[in-house]
Design a protein around this nucleic acid. Sequence first.
RNA 1: GGACUCGUAGCCUAGCCUGGACAGGGCGUCGGCCUUCUAAGCCGAAGAUCGCGGGUUCAAAUCCCGCCGAGUCCGCCA
Length: 553
Amino acid sequence: MLDVVLEEAERLLAGVLGDVEPALQEPRGGYGDLASAACFSLAKARRKAPAELAEELVRELDLTGARFIARAEALNGFINFHFNYPELARATLERVAGEGRSYGRGRRRGKVILEHTSANPDGPLHIGHGRNAIIGDSLARIMRFAGYEVETEYYLNDMGRQLAVVVLGLRRLELDREVKQDHAIARVYVEASRMVEEREELQEELSRLMRAYEAGDEATVREFREAAEYCMQGIRETLRRLGIHHDITVWESEFVRSGSVQRVVERLEATEHARRDEVLYLDLSSFGIEKELVLCRRDGTMLYATRDIAHHLWKAERGRAIDVWGADHKLLAEQMRAVMRILGAPEPEFVIHEFITLPEGSMSTRRGRFISMDELLDEAAERALREVERRRGDRPEEFRRRVAEQVAVGAVRYAMVRVAPEKHVKFRWEEVLDFERQGAPFIQYAHARACRILEKAELPGEYTVGELSEEERILVKLVASLPVVVDRAAEELKPSLLAGYLLELATAFHSFYSSARVLGSEKQDFRLRLVDAVRITLANSMELLGIPVLEEM
RNA sequence: GGACUCGUAGCCUAGCCUGGACAGGGCGUCGGCCUUCUAAGCCGAAGAUCGCGGGUUCAAAUCCCGCCGAGUCCGCCA
């Protein structure tokens, strides 16, 4: 709804500014509902003080045709607009009620291939992978809602040394069928890594294994596939628990077997960037990348990055490629962009996230030093259950368990998406598992509160709006903002914008809830409709971050 | 050593790309609020040289340069 209001403000300003940027912004506090800083940039051209200019322009503004902007005033060089809240409230409530679960949906078009998670099949997802998966899945949900056709991809790295180590381990170690598949594979991987390190002859076996797999030896292929699939069963179970689903799983080896890696190497070899001295590599210095990119080993076999080039070329043909990658892949991301330019293909876009480190240092699957997402979720669910028992001892066990699980999933997902991806995170249990304020339970609770009011009364068809309280105005403005927030988050690839928005909306609702009575008040009809609009807006936004929506908690 | 990212109150964080009005939140601390729609809530107080130094600008947390600190990368690994 605010999209319409912004357009109106821009139109009004265009009348007095000409083609000067309207420079609309959120006023810092108490200065109205929308501000323009245009007078500052206009000041030099017109050789007048911004404050004076603002006064002048406000006098010139013609608000007679305006629907949502009631008045404008000049202050400190800014032009501050005040909304016509009764009108905005009515229009917003009508729109939200009319669009329901679609409220906030955008009109962006085009196909997006969104790759995320893509952890090696050598163990369970740890919390670093979790950050990747949750950012990626949230972004997928947001872009889909913004209108894009989104296909999510898990790029399965089956040609790496890790999986070969697992296969080697499975040949001589027993797989514990009692524990979750990915954890069982991790045990084999850790143990086999140690064996390979200690026994030289195993390193030769490892090389033979990798060569046989690359060559497509049938028995070896079966061994690798089974091992990877077994691990993936566990990984998918964890993802499912988080509400994450991948539309396609793409095996790295496919690009070798299909010959597309070979073909892309030949194409690159023919370009001016190709160099050969002992090995074939690309000189990317003309793209500002000093590090050369080696394409083939001395023995002629391909490298991970080379296979990924074929992979990205394939993706570029299918649509707009967006990859969620860890910060360790920054250089490769730059190289990938450069190579796609060389090939004349559209460049992939990247969402790079920093690492989560443990107090004792970085995580390592091979050394068995990591916190798995399963552990994190279990711990979260256990702590949540204690909270629910304490608060809702009156409800049956089934209810308490279900709520605890949903609170846990919400808390973990929110914690991961709340912080901007470029920040390093030092993992602390207390931070992720804090169930008070600035977290998912706070948001879920706002929704539950709204539901509990609404279940006690019929939603009125008719209502009068009248003057709004401060709390009501804030709510209306926030509810009206969802379409703008969704679009911006999708365009800037920033799920954290939704996280911030959701927190603001929940905060505003809790304030409203405490300040005013809905049921039995004189404004009951209007407030019921407002609460319903908030309920829908909260639910739609929570859905975009994969935070479970609860009617009661 | 080079490249990239981060550095905002005791702790966590928004704002930085697109420079403008007293730098927003939260945790923790202190003080209030449950006979009324679930207090996982609300209201208030104290707490910030926006890492440091220079520059550009009428105006810098925001842009530029240098320095310091943390992280990541710099494999014919993945």
